[in-house]
Nucleic acid binder design. Structure first.
Lengths: 217, 217
DNA sequence: CTATTTGAACTGACCGGTCAGTTTAGTTAG
DNA sequence: CTAACTAAACTGACCGGTCAGTTCAAATAG
């Protein structure tokens, strides 16, 4: 945890079990996949520091050694897990991009897709909000990069709206994107945790209120 | 914050106790207060599970035993810490309530006050988003209660707006409140962590976009 | 043969919680 | 005024247990 890489003298590059290496399709991917799913679930529920590697291995139906064979460390596993989740989300958001002609409708679709993603990977959002915003934490760099990628997608959607409608230019674009981002996550998480009876449409509509307020009527 | 007394060792017989020597509870409160501040800072940065009781004690300038003298357990400390932070926030939000005549302006003040709170207690929001939304976690009950209290304040402000303006009734009130809540926290946290150059006014304006979208004009 | 996985042992550090003892402030008795 | 007393407040060494990370010989599979 302390990030102080021990490795005092022993620098053996060709030690064993290279954690990052081209892999033959078949089993390796499956193992990593199962480790991703198991960690996503556990870490999303109890936080990164609250889950042990042994638990993750057990949940994935794999031995502890396998975890360290596929990933260099617990920290590395989590970093790759974050990347993995964001990749899935990005693909989904890209899919609905330009599906509609109206930028506002396109935006609604995107928010809906984000909500659906949170339904399918409920633990990812928990992981995200749990570990993000940690002052110089272990994955600051990873989060900064992933955050930028997600905000870029939202940003381009907002850009399209701004190009097609008259909007309130006095609103800072960056803050607006953050607000949308935050509203999506918190509305989605709140629905899962406290108000499962609320529909996805309700949630999307509440988030889209931001965009309607951005427009000049 | 104001003390900053070094208190390096116990060679100072006149320093051990705070000025007020009227009642026993006076001392208790001072120690508890320091423990609150120390834990808020540390836990906000590294998460509840990532901070040790020894660290908290050291940061507060007391011994580990004192932590257990004042609180029953680490878990209890955190529960009380959450309550403490919410109480501060609630007092602040109540203060601006009804300060303005226009409900919308009043709402703007409230959001501004929330942002100011996040400036003053930057670690509290981190603690909140880190530990909230944990499926049956240790403080589920505490969070449920505190969340309700905070949402009630936001809700009454929204209610006032709805009473004074024509609003979009098709938007679910609960989801709207969650969106506002989420936008406040995430915009505030994002500003602190990634974009400190953004002003509080920008942030407030971005959040208030939600309310403008709620209005029918 | 080679890549991958297993399972278990091992370590070295760490952690939450405890407790017997110490300090301090306030009170009482002489 | 002060010595004795009391109880709250505080201390820090200590304990039982846990965890991340390492290593490796043997098994499995392509």
């Amino acid at each position: 945890m302390s990030t102080t890489e021990p490795v005092p003298s022993e620098a053996d590059p060709q030690e064993r079990g290279p954690a990052e290496k081209k892999l033959r399709p078949g089993r390796t991917n499956a193992t990593k996949q199962r480790l991703f799913e198991a960690s996503m679930e556990l870490i999303g529920e109890r936080g990164a520091a609250g889950v042990t590697v042994d638990e993750i291995a057990a949940a994935a139906g794999v031995s502890k050694g396998t975890v360290y064979y596929n990933f260099g460390s617990k920290s590395d596993l989590i970093a790759q897990l974050l990347r993995h989740g964001v990749d899935i989300m990005l693909v989904r958001l890209q899919d609905v991009r330009g599906q509609a002609n109206d930028p506002l409708e396109s935006m609604t679709n995107m928010v809906g897709q984000a909500m659906e993603f949170m339904d399918d990977y409920p633990s990812f959002a928990r992981l995200w909000v749990s570990e993000n915003w940690r002052t110089p934490g272990e994955w600051s760099a990873v989060f900064a990069e992933l955050r930028a990628e997600l905000l870029a997608v939202i940003g381009s959607a907002v850009e399209s709206v701004a190009a097609g409608y008259k909007v309130d230019e006095s609103i800072a674009r960056g803050s607006l994107e953050a607000a949308i981002f935050g509203a999506i996550f918190v509305v989605g998480l709140d629905r899962q945790t406290y108000n499962p009876e609320r529909t996805r449409e309700q949630s999307v509509a509440a988030v889209m209120t931001i965009m309607h307020g951005y427009l000049i009527k």
